[in-house]
Every structure is written in structure tokens, then in C-alpha cells.
């Protein structure tokens, strides 16, 4: 028995210039906020941008963007709708706000399905909000998506950084491009993470200070883009424009 979906994935992504997986070793480091804000920032700079939430069991980019009552168009597959200038795709269209308890093989299958049926238009960037770690979704993207590039998010925590190192070692071993590492939720002036990242041979893209007002702007894109967090992402965005 042959799964016919695999062979079509390449052609579904052929109009996308850069596929950026925003990833981390651990959850709770602000990956979804970085992915969403980065996608919005690039769109504001007149790039054609898609945002694909691949965290199937805990999707959250729709909450960050405040997306409601939006549905993809059905046209020889699925065409992601445009939301705040982004072509936006998430499993949330199908699961609603209900829990989706999926095991690894089911995550793989759902991911293959969405990659096989989603028709992305011409995009300069497709930003993917990844689930944390080096599990099924990461391995499937590495298997199925050519020329994928990773942007890694960590916090200042040594625990988060240890898991980031594992992700980076895996990607380096597989010769996957790592754009660089962002240190999020920074609460002091320490250069510990920056030094470690550079020692590791990776680009350190910047520090984003902990911003306790972020919680209040969840769901409001205009307010989100006015935060210090968004300003720092704007400083980081040129690294992607050079790709």
C-alpha cells in the first residue's frame, strides 16, 4: 500500500521562497508569540507571508492574532484565508476550541494531510509555529519539506538552553540551516546564553526582555505590534530578509 499524499507535498510548497520553522527544545519559551509577531512584522514590510500553526495538540497562534469566524476556502484543496495580511492555516479550523488528543502517528498523519491539501500561493516566507522538542512534527518536516530553515527560541533558563542544544545538534548533524537563536523573556544583563550560542557556532539574533504587558495584548494585533517585544522582533527581522 502506498500513501499518495507524500509525492504532492513538494509541489504544494513550490511557490514558497523561504520556509522558516520557529522551534524550541522546550515549551513555554514564547515560540508562538515569536512566530506570530515575526510573520506580522514581515507582512508589514510588504512581504507575502504565511503562518502555519503546526502545534496540533496545543495551537495558540489563533489566540495571539485574535482570529474568529474565519474559514479556509475550498478550491481544489484548501486555500488559507488572509488574516491581518497573513495567509493563515491552523488545525483549529477543524478542531474548534476542543481538545485534540493525538498520538505521534496521528500527528504525522494530520501533518501530511495538511501539507498535501493546503494550496499556498506565492509567498516570500512561510513561518511555521512548531510544537516544542524533536518529536514527530519536527522529524516529519525534516523528512518532507526541502530547504526548511530553523529559527530557534530559548529563554535564559539553562534548562531551556540544554534542550535547545539537543535540537541544534540534531539539525547540525542533518545539515539543516539554522538561521539563529533568539533569547526570549530576558530578565537580566547576563551574556551567558549569547556566549554559549556563539561558542556553539550559531548566530545569536538578539535578546527580548521579559514583558509583563504581553499577556494583556493577546488577541489584539495592533497592540501586540506596539510592544517592546514586537520592536525587538523588528530588529531581528532583517536577519530573515538576508536569506
Amino acid at each position: 500500500m502506498i500513501d499518495p499524499r507524500i509525492s504532492i507535498i513538494d509541489s504544494r510548497l513550490k511557490k514558497v521562497n523561504n520556509i522558516i520553522a520557529v522551534s524550541s527544545g522546550k515549551g513555554g519559551v514564547g515560540k508562538s508569540l515569536v512566530a506570530s509577531t515575526l510573520a506580522l512584522t514581515l507582512a508589514k514590510r510588504d512581504y507575502k507571508v504565511g503562518l502555519f500553526d503546526l502545534d496540533f495538540t496545543s495551537p495558540s497562534t489563533h489566540l495571539i492574532l485574535g482570529i474568529r469566524e474565519t474559514w479556509p476556502k475550498e478550491e481544489k484543496g484548501i486555500v488559507p484565508p488572509e488574516v491581518y495580511g497573513l495567509k493563515y492555516m491552523s488545525i483549529i479550523y477543524y478542531s474548534g476550541n476542543k481538545p485534540s488528543p493525538l498520538r505521534g502517528t496521528e500527528i504525522s498523519n494530520a501533518l501530511v494531510e495538511l501539507l498535501a491539501i493546503t494550496r499556498w500561493e506565492n509567498l516570500d516566507f512561510l513561518v511555521i509555529d512548531m510544537p516544542p522538542g524533536i518529536g514527530d512534527a519536527t522529524l516529519d518536516l525534516l523528512r518532507l519539506v526541502k530547504d526548511i530553515k530553523f529559527l530557534i527560541v530559548t529563554t535564559s533558563s539553562r534548562l531551556a538552553f540544554e534542550t535547545v542544544k539537543k535540537l541544534a545538534i540534531l539539525l547540525k548533524k542533518l545539515e539543516i540551516k539554522i538561521i539563529g537563536v533568539i533569547e526570549n523573556m530576558k530578565m537580566d544583563d547576563s551574556d551567558f546564553i549569547k556566549d554559549q550560542i556563539e561558542e556553539f557556532g550559531l548566530s545569536f539574533l538578539g535578546k527580548i526582555p521579559f514583558d509583563n504587558r504581553i499577556e494583556k495584548v493577546i488577541g489584539n494585533v495592533d497592540m501586540l505590534l506596539a510592544t517592546v517585544f514586537a520592536k525587538k522582533i523588528r530588529d531581528i527581522a532583517p536577519h530573515l530578509e538576508k536569506l
Binding site: P4, I8, E75, G77, R119
Partner: peptide, 18 residues
């Protein structure tokens, strides 16, 4: 017409095997 996307996948796979 989700079926169309699946049909494209079938044709693509069969063509590759051929």
C-alpha cells in the same frame, strides 16, 4: 473539492512510479 487535491496526489504518485 478536497477530492481534487487527493486526486492530484494519486496522479503525481502514479506518474513517479511509472
Amino acid at each position: 473539492m478536497h477530492e481534487w487535491a487527493l486526486a492530484e496526489a494519486v496522479i503525481s504518485t502514479v506518474s513517479q512510479i511509472a
